[in-house]
Nucleic acid binder design. Structure first.
Lengths: 152, 152
DNA sequence: GGTAATTGTGGGTAATTGTGGGTAAAACAA
DNA sequence: TTGTTTTACCCACAATTACCCACAATTACC
């Protein structure tokens, strides 16, 4: 399971260095083959080891074309899925199109999220985070049932 | 179960010494692997032995991506979960990002909380504590049913 | 109360990691 | 083809982190 947080910079060529503590796993897991695609829920990117992505892909294939949300999710995630590999310095090259989607500027953050990594523009992430923290903090909102029964 | 209170200092490199009476348990429990993450309820940090964290992680993994609150909770807790180990002096290095989140200055406190430790900035903790004591004391707030049936 | 052991704190140094940029190969367009 | 842009590969520097060692403060013990 991937976890953890790092602040990183996207250089002028659109490259992003994966934190070193994750490199070995990423380069061994599927011969170093990775898949980068967009996160349809947020303006951020997802980075999967190929083997994990293939599993996702089969699940996507099962989504009905007659359900609008399902169709769109499929289109987006598959359509933007880009193969990539770590270079000798442990970086990946993020295509222009995906950089635009996630509105990546110079500063980015990368978050371990179980079977994948999530990549955000730093400012956008902070905004999201603070918004969420506010919601958790005030007790006015209704936590979902799943959350209500969660003891950490 | 962890319990107890200690005042400690965070040095200029962001290191925090775990009280010695807890070291042995922390370094033996899961080969010394620990996970440090943020406490989404308060501006403080949680320190889990890896084995305890993994249990939390599986619970988080079950939350749906299509429920916004669940998704955010997952993102935050996993995203900020940082692997760490005690160094030769029994300290952990707290990443800048987490220090900022918990607003840790020079003085910190660490509280045993069952399956984990909670780490606060000392001043922030005192403030919180006094505030809570006031609230608990006056009977204006509505205690939940669970609390109502609690005999201490 | 005095001494010895343990614990908490600080800092130096070496290794690792993150970042930037140069150059050559490859892809693409005209 | 030729010229232009993009990508891959390499090298180098700066910042961070891990690993030591040393001292001060605290605690335990006689």
């Amino acid at each position: 399971m991937f976890r953890g947080f790092s602040t990183l910079s996207v250089d002028s060529k659109g490259r992003l260095a994966v934190p070193s503590r994750h490199r070995e796993r990423l380069s061994s897991e599927t011969g170093g083959c990775l898949v980068l695609t967009l996160n349809p829920m947020d303006r951020s990117l997802w980075l999967y080891p190929l083997i994990e992505w293939e599993f996702i892909e089969t699940k996507l294939a099962e989504l009905s074309d007659f359900d609008k949300q399902g169709r769109r999710t499929k289109q987006m995630m598959r359509g933007y899925a880009t193969d990539c590999q770590l270079d000798a310095q442990g970086r990946i090259l993020i295509p222009q199109e995906l950089r635009d989607y996630a509105q990546l500027k110079k500063q980015a953050v990368i978050l371990g999220q179980g079977n994948k990594f999530e990549i955000w523009d730093k400012a956008a992430w902070k905004e999201q985070r603070d918004q969420w923290l506010e919601q958790i903090g005030d007790d006015s909102g209704e936590p979902s049932d799943a959350l209500r029964s969660l003891s950490l």
